[in-house]
Write a protein that binds this DNA or RNA. Structure first.
Length: 378
DNA sequence: AATATTTGACCGAC
DNA sequence: GTCGGTCAAATATT
């Protein structure tokens, strides 16, 4: 641990270095460490250019160690994939260094060269995989200066969920709506559609007992004007912060969007809960403006302004927006508004919904949404 | 200045 | 008394 700080020399610059120094991210050219409760990031390139200390890109709020948890194997989706790639890169480099020491310099030169070639290939492939993954996350950077210097990982995650409440561009969200009489209905929104074009306004936030993240409360923006009673609750999943649970309550009675038409008052108080988990690359394609706004809002722009190299830009996006799950969906109450996944097919039995439903989606949207889970409302 | 968000207070259900 | 949901004043953002 201390070696990490030592290796980086100036990493302790301007910070109270403690025994707690943990490598959070390392990709050859750049590295992130956790020292004294602060997430520090710096690239070799920057160091070459004479930068003295690392950039402080986040901090640990109180006892929260969100990223540490993720690094230890928690989390899921694209963020975890990225971390696993980084880990594999690191292991490859370590193996490389180890073999360089173990293999005799002269005698087995040919074998050493072969091993070296294989390892280099592995390393290169991992770098490309990571770059490809990160490219989908690079949605902003180099933006104007922000007022706040640091955001904790939990804050970023929480605000991602909050921002999702306002996300308008469509993504694939699917599930089954639950009617007041207990019957259910399958709903689906297409990736690339505009989803619901309603505008939502946040009216509250509440810490929920036993939940790591607060629940955000939204109502239709035209509620005051038209009396529309539609609401939705957005909450990040404890198990996977990149996953959002969105509960829709009531139906729109406003005509703020052209279609589908407003539902009947009898549909009020319907509830449906969908759980979405979207890879950053899909979200980037689906909601570039929203995500960019999110990045602008949360990435410490003082850092972004002074470190605009591609590597740092990607790293900042990667580190601060682990997977900006951003989704929008609604319970559509009119039959025929959306196509059935399989016309005529009956919905899976409750016990089978989890597996069967996922399978269906994966079959249809494998290249777009790798993970989508339905969960009935409480 | 207008609009949106935040957050402590309040309320009803349990 | 506790908890989730909502209100509304304060604050932040555009």
């Amino acid at each position: 641990m201390a070696a990490v700080a030592k290796e980086w020399g100036e990493c302790a610059h301007d910070l109270r270095t403690t025994a707690v120094a943990r490598t959070m991210f390392s990709s050859g050219m750049s590295r992130m460490v956790l020292i004294g409760g602060a997430y520090l990031s710096m690239s070799w390139e920057e160091r070459q250019r004479g930068r003295k200390g690392p950039k402080r890109v986040g901090e640990v709020p109180g006892s929260t160690h969100a990223l540490a948890g993720r690094a230890a194997g928690g989390g899921g989706g694209a963020a975890t994939t990225g971390w696993l790639i980084v880990r594999a890169q690191k292991s490859t480099n370590q193996l490389k260094a180890l073999l360089a020491k173990l293999l005799p310099a002269g005698g087995a030169a040919q074998g050493a060269a072969a091993v070296e070639a294989i390892l280099s290939d592995m390393s290169e492939a991992l770098s490309e995989a990571l770059a490809s993954l990160q490219a989908g996350r690079t949605m902003g950077g180099c933006r104007r200066r922000r007022r706040r210097a640091c955001w904790s990982m939990d804050e970023v995650l929480q605000r991602s969920a909050a921002a999702a409440g306002q996300c308008r561009e469509g993504v694939v969200v699917s599930g089954e709506g639950i009617r007041a009489d207990g019957s259910s209905r399958r709903i689906m929104l297409q990736f690339g559609d505009r989803g619901d074009s309603y505008t939502w306004r946040k009216y509250g936030q509440k810490d929920i007992l036993g939940a790591r993240f607060a629940r955000n409360y939204y109502r239709c923006a035209c509620a005051q004007r038209s009396g529309c009673s539609a609401r939705k609750h957005v909450q990040q999943s404890d198990d996977d912060p990149t996953r959002l649970e969105i509960t829709y309550i009531g139906a729109h009675t406003c005509d703020d969007r052209p279609s589908p038409p407003a539902t009947s008052p009898a549909d009020d108080e319907q509830r449906s809960t969908v759980v979405s988990h979207l890879p950053a690359v899909a979200v980037a394609a689906a909601a570039p403006s929203t995500v960019r706004k999110l990045v602008e809002r949360h990435v410490p722009a003082s850092d972004m302004m002074e470190a605009c190299t591609p590597s740092m830009e990607m790293e900042a996006s990667w580190l601060l927006i682990p997977s900006p799950a951003c989704s929008q969906s609604e319970l559509l109450s009119e039959a025929g508004e959306v196509p059935e996944l399989r016309p005529g097919a009956s919905p899976p039995a409750p016990a089978e919904r989890g597996k069967a439903w996922d399978g269906e989606l994966l079959a249809l949207y494998d290249s777009v949404v790798p993970d989508l889970v339905w969960r009935p409302s409480a």
